[in-house]
Design a protein around this nucleic acid. Sequence first.
DNA 1: GGCGTTAAGTTAACACCGTTACATTAACAC
DNA 2: GTGTTAATGTAACGGTGTTAACTTAACGCC
Lengths: 223, 223
Amino acid sequence: MTESHIAEKTGSRETETAILEAARNLLAEGGLDALSMRAVASQVGLSATAIYHWFEGKEDLVDRVVLHGFRRSEAYMWKAIEELPAGSMDRVAALGEAYIRFALENREYFKIIFAIQTPAPRHIDDVPGQGGYRVLRQCVVEAMDAGNIRRTDPDVVVLFLWSLVHGLVTIFMACDPKEMLAETGCCDDLDGKDLTIGLFARFRDLVRGGLEPEEGMGGGGDA
Amino acid sequence: MTESHIAEKTGSRETETAILEAARNLLAEGGLDALSMRAVASQVGLSATAIYHWFEGKEDLVDRVVLHGFRRSEAYMWKAIEELPAGSMDRVAALGEAYIRFALENREYFKIIFAIQTPAPRHIDDVPGQGGYRVLRQCVVEAMDAGNIRRTDPDVVVLFLWSLVHGLVTIFMACDPKEMLAETGCCDDLDGKDLTIGLFARFRDLVRGGLEPEEGMGGGGDA
DNA sequence: GGCGTTAAGTTAACACCGTTACATTAACAC
DNA sequence: GTGTTAATGTAACGGTGTTAACTTAACGCC
């Protein structure tokens, strides 16, 4: 409670950020298993128990690491749309693509939030939606105002789009997308991240026009 | 390699299934952390090491437990559509709803596949898509033949629908959906599983008709 | 200069964990 | 009987997150 408290804290924070950075690297390289208190500590040059002076425990440490990831993701998504015209569907699509890119480039951050053993579900602010949700929502509302999206509850549309992209990413992170689409031959020349984005591109038509057949095209095939 | 091998094995399998059942319960109750070799063993009345005679290790045990979950999920989905007319969109929608129901009623099975630390992604056959993918694909193809779905690559449509539903479930398992839609007031009276399904119902319009505004409705609002 | 307090870190230990090595018991084949 | 194999047990290893108790250094204060 003394006056010099602020300055004193500021200096010591270096240790805290060093711990966070080490944790971040371990997580990105080897996943949650590789992020052990002892591994983090040895990388920083401390004993494992010293970490408990800065973080409540492993869960707290991981939370803080992941939080940092979200902050980056928000910036990532803003950057993706900044040069595209407001109200355009291109903006909405670019946002989806950015989400995919970020997720696949930061698998471990991403997995943790949706994979972690949480007894209670996490608050929305702790989730990639944090920045993402609000950015997307703004784009959707603008697109509605511009007459590019049918006028309905914007939150339903946002969740619709978010679910679509998030589902695609999550599925492709768990299965081998290449194998999954082997029979189809669609996007044959692509793989990994590009395949996911290629498939996302093919979703655009469905999102825009829906699954319903065009009017006046006759009743489909030979049924 | 002796002749009595089969009968002998059949009798002993009871131990194996007892282990599986104990593992299943522990997983469903307390997640992957609660499923420890020692906990399983004590529940069956064995020593932890005895499990290694029936399973290669924890990973193998978990895999087998999850596999059982998939089998159930497939049956669950077949049952959901059996009384609905083939080729109808109701079938497709019922499948989505069944997927949501199963996921939320079997969170731990579900989480594991998409959450587990897999260096290499799992094969499609190891994923809820296993049964699910093929069931959904059949329904989509039938709906195309019946003229209820625009004719395009069915695998793209299947993945589109699967992504949508899977994303919705995954997001709602990680965030608090109630909180997320607080401002909107949509589906205000529902919660938990019902809210997710309620929201899924609102997706149906968007899936059918797309986001594009109807022709001849004028250029949207006041933009 | 001595005192109390706090920050920052240590070592030792606890209770788990998955897994391995090795011993044991029982049943069966020859 | 003897050998073999299935089925289980005990003891132990190296790892985990975490706690308790201790040190060491720095600071404010009188």
